[in-house]
Amino acid sequence: MSEEIYQGKILSPVVRNITQDKINLYAGASGDFNPIHIDESFAARTPLGGTIAHGMLVLSYVSEIMSQSFGRGWSSGGKLSMRFKAPARPGDTITVTGKVNSLEEREGVPHATCSLDCRNQKGELIVTGEAVVGIARKENTHGSK
């Protein structure tokens, strides 16, 4: 977890390569066998033109950037709001980036509001949104830096 959280801080990015094997593995782990994810011949006949990664798989990478930046506070007090803008496809390299946009006290606890984006290797926006998380008191926080 980061030692210091401050307004404007850029979170360490998370980078993941999407493959059909990984999508299939996620289907097995999550129980989501929607053919748009795992059946290449079916998916090729849809407007999407091919298989796509599960939205929840991509969101797991978003959750990871928050976990690595805010530790267990994320899993016990985080809030996430994300919109899926484009599909992540096999062969894509997904980079999740985040930035602390603001810090504010809520019921005596400092909270960070972060903007989050997932883009593919072409820079296309895949998922975008915002997360809010409480910061443990032991963290050194600043209004800005």
Partner: peptide, 16 residues
């Protein structure tokens, strides 16, 4: 139906 897709997701976590 096959082909249903996820458009947005909100989540809030309260406890480990």
């Amino acid at each position: 139906p096959s082909g249903a897709i996820h458009a947005s997701q909100e989540l809030e976590f309260f406890k480990l």
